[in-house]
Amino acid sequence: MHFFSQAFDYEHPWSHVVIGMWHKYPNSKCTHVVSVDVLDRSVDPKTGIIRTERVLGCKQKAPLWIVKLFGGSEDAFVREISFVDPASQNATITSVNLSLSQFATCFEQIQYSPISPHRTSFSQTAEIQARMALWRSAADGLEKWLVQRFEQNAQLGKLGFTDVLRTLWEERHRVPAS
């Protein structure tokens, strides 16, 4: 598992940052994000918390070996869940990759909270983890296949060499020495 984290402040009030959240894409620095769609949204009529589920489409060239090994493509999708809580002035965004998720997960959390009327702190953490259970079962399957192939080949090798020896010495014995 690998971790990533960063934190800094934006020189904007919390409400401006949270309004800006919905305008983040497209932007010229993040051209890899090509689509953003809302799949679900609710406004809690008691707490006022807004929950939004979105799917982000990204285009990013993966290294060739990754594409070959995992069959990935340029298009990758991410599921993002955000909560905006006006009472606690907290906005959290959790993202998990959908593409290649059978092989590895990238779990990202972002939080925006006010530190003064004009400043907002941003903190971001991510955990990147390959699915070890899958690797283990794949490695196990590979070993089994290798053992089977080895056993078959060993059996064929034995039969083949038996034939070669018999033929060789039968012929030698048949030809009388001159």
Partner: peptide
């Protein structure tokens, strides 16, 4: 994407705001 989404929703329903992250600013 519907199947991948279904699987992601089962793994992380995220129906409630998550606890604050480990790293504080």
């Amino acid at each position: 994407l519907d199947k991948l989404l279904q699987q992601a929703r089962e793994e992380n329903p995220l129906t409630m705001p998550p606890p604050p992250p480990i790293v504080k600013p």
